[in-house]
């Protein structure tokens, strides 16, 4: 690959990294897993004069599960660590369902969860999962840390809410309000292809009723779509064919896909409806089986 010339720095601490980003004045880019950045450099779609490689900074690769069920994911935690985590499978089925579907195994070995959120690609998998779970990104800048809900993180395609000298240091998933259930379904032309459409749907179940729900949609708009009305319609009652069907319709309404070589807009809306239905129906039958 023959990218344009750039300066490369690999700081040892977060503070040094923030300092370098400040110097870069908005033109610097953070290099974590590099699975999106390197192709952009190769294709010369991006030509940042400064790359700040954060891989040398210790203490950022954690995947921590708290007793209350909340989860913390460090900036250098790779997709593969999530995919291989037994505990994730037990604690957070929606995330576990997505972990094996992000890109391909090669990308998963290197790419990072937090990097995927910050990259703000409307075709990214994790942002939709985090929208469905009500997760947040913890950003650290010269003035300290702040937490940004992922649904507010993404402004548009490849545009996030971070200032030029903030680093996404950690992602957090809140504790579930009951038994966390859900799933992730992705339609892709080939393993490793970007999603034609993907849906993350998460429901917490307490006493047979939905206590909390979230639905995030991938590749059906200029950013990760939050089907919040669809999710809200589920809360308070049990999952029934009627409630599922109505939520699926509401989710499809939120989808604003475009026709392209992956499929027509109408088809993609149909897939949103189908996937919401399939995930929630599967949850509902697992509940019936358990009961």
């Amino acid at each position: 690959m023959y990218p344009p010339r750039f300066r490369y720095e690999a700081p040892q601490t977060i503070d040094e990294a923030i300092q370098l980003l400040s110097e870069g004045g908005g033109d610097a880019k953070i290099l974590a897993g590099g699975q999106s950045l390197i192709p952009l450099l190769k294709l010369r779609f991006a030509s940042p004069p400064l790359l700040v490689d954060i891989n040398e900074i210790p203490g950022l690769d954690h995947l921590d599960f708290a007793a209350d069920g909340s989860i913390r994911i460090g900036a250098l935690c790779r997709h593969a660590a999530l995919e291989r985590s037994e505990e994730l499978r037990v604690r957070q089925p929606t995330m576990a369902a997505a972990a094996g579907l992000v890109a391909d195994p090669i990308v998963r070995n290197r790419g990072t969860f937090v990097g995927s959120l910050c990259h703000a690609d409307p075709q990214g998998d994790w942002a939709a999962v985090m929208v469905a779970l009500g997760g947040s990104l913890v950003a650290q800048g010269p003035n300290g840390r702040r937490s940004i809900p992922v649904k507010d993180l993404v402004h548009g395609p490849f545009q996030n809410a971070l200032t030029h000298n903030e680093i996404g240091v950690e992602a957090t998933v809140p504790a579930p309000q009951g038994t966390p259930l859900g799933g992730y379904l992705k339609l892709e032309r080939r393993i490793g292809d970007f999603a034609t459409v993907a849906v993350a749907a998460s429901v917490d179940i307490e006493g047979g009723a939905v206590s909390r729900a979230g639905i995030g949609l991938v590749a059906v708009g200029s950013k990760t779509m939050d089907a919040s009305d669809a999710a809200a319609s589920l809360v308070g009652g049990p999952l029934t064919p009627e409630s599922i069907s109505s939520a699926a319709d509401l989710a499809a309404e939120v989808a604003k896909p475009r026709s392209d070589h992956r499929g027509s807009a109408d088809y993609k809306k149909h897939i949103v409806r189908t996937f919401v239905t399939r995930i929630l129906t599967r949850v509902s039958s697992s509940l019936e089986k358990a009961a």
Binding site: L43, D104, P105, R189, R190, I191, G192, D193, H261
Partner: peptide, 12 residues
């Protein structure tokens, strides 16, 4: 490019 022109892999 290989994002749009797909070569099959052993996975599928």
């Amino acid at each position: 490019n290989y994002m749009d022109y797909l070569l099959p892999t052993a996975w599928e």
